[in-house]
């Protein structure tokens, strides 16, 4: 790895010449819309049970998330550490410190410990809604750095989703599973460890989701300061069952079953033993779901958005969704989007 550094120019000739293109990379990452399932799962390891916090994200693969531009700056070689302000990464906007850290960690991972960079991140994702604003920015940053490194070296850089996850969790302590492809398989992701706990054999069934915000008035939730939910032994046992129902939902490609998992998880989020995250008017939402024939309710387990899940093959889908929009509007929630997931 260090030979890359010694071969790097670093003598300022490139940096001093404005006419030469700098090693540059642009990359994006889509947002998500809450989690189909999030909780604590008993995982067997060597005959012992460990409880692992994990989630299944609801990706928004068609939506604009974050875009990052990265430029390596060989003229500013130095001794950098993954510590805000000492990363050698100039980030815009400058309060995007998680992206700054992620960029540093990515450079280190590619063996470019002394390389400085400029990073600019633009995000369309609202903060605190539970749509992955920080992870989409962090993942876009990591990807942009990888591309700039590739441009700098003039060779391909392989950026495995597992590496993105490891870097993202190192940068922000907990991250969503946006870096994994959602169109060919489904993963249960340990968001505080950055590890895949379980891979399901196939994508989630295709669902239409009517998304809305239950907390626009309170301007979102600071997900970093949110105390983590604690679940009872009974709830942890039930989360194990949720994985079985999810497996079945995926093998049958059943929106109905996936919806059951989502509603179950939303209810657990409401009723965690400690630090539940209650959505306003949740019971009314459950009633609307029943009345309208929606397959389930998906919520952000650390955010304010929620959505009604619909089977795209419902015969009178349009009118049902219109009815749902009106009912949600009457509760005083802003409709945010209608989207298809996982593809």
């Amino acid at each position: 790895m260090t030979e890359m550094l010694t071969r790097a120019p670093g003598d300022g000739t490139i940096a001093s010449s404005y006419s030469l293109a700098k090693p540059y990379g642009v990359a994006t990452c889509h947002p998500h819309f809450g989690e189909l399932l999030q909780g604590a799962f008993a995982v067997e390891k060597g005959g012992h049970h460990r409880t692992v916090r994990a989630l299944v994200s609801v990706h928004m693969p068609h939506a604009n998330g974050s875009q990052a531009h990265a430029i390596l700056e060989p003229s500013r070689m130095g001794k950098f550490v993954p510590q805000v302000g000492r990363t050698g990464v100039q980030v815009k906007p400058n309060h995007f410190y998680k992206c700054e850290l992620a960029a540093r960690l990515a450079l280190d991972a590619f063996g470019m410990r002394n390389m400085a960079a400029k990073l600019e991140v633009r995000t369309m994702v609202p903060e605190g809604a539970g749509m992955g604003s920080s992870t989409s920015g962090v993942v876009a940053s990591i990807r942009a750095i990888a591309r700039s490194v590739a441009a700098y070296r003039g060779s391909r850089v392989l950026l495995a989703p597992h590496l993105q996850a490891k870097l993202a969790v190192a940068a922000e302590h907990a991250c969503d599973s946006l870096m994994f492809d959602c169109t060919s398989s489904t993963i249960l992701f340990a968001h505080r460890m950055g590890k895949v706990v379980q891979v399901f054999n196939g994508p989630l069934p295709q669902m239409y989701i009517l998304g809305f915000d239950t907390g626009a008035a309170n301007s979102g939730i600071g997900t970093d300061r949110l105390p983590r939910a604690r679940y009872s032994r009974d709830q942890i046992a039930a989360f194990g069952c949720a994985l079985a129902v999810l497996e079945r939902a995926i093998s049958e490609q059943s929106v109905a079953l996936a919806g059951r998992v989502a509603t179950f998880s939303a209810i657990q989020s409401e009723s965690a033993l400690q630090n539940p995250l209650k959505k306003p008017k949740f019971d009314e939402l459950l009633r609307i779901k029943e009345d309208i024939g929606s397959a389930g309710i998906v919520v952000a387990h650390s955010g304010t958005v929620a959505g009604l899940i619909f089977d795209p093959n419902l015969p009178d889908l349009r009118s049902r969704m219109d009815e749902a929009k009106a009912a949600i509007g009457r509760l005083g929630f802003d409709i945010r989007c209608t989207f298809s997931t996982p593809y």
Binding site: D234, A237, G240, C241, L243, A244, V245, R248, L257, R260
Partner: peptide
């Protein structure tokens, strides 16, 4: 006694669905 039946319930739903 109740908790013991979470895994059997999971297995039933995995194999039999709804």
């Amino acid at each position: 006694n109740h908790f013991s039946y979470a895994r059997p319930a999971a297995e039933a739903m995995r194999r039999f669905g709804k």
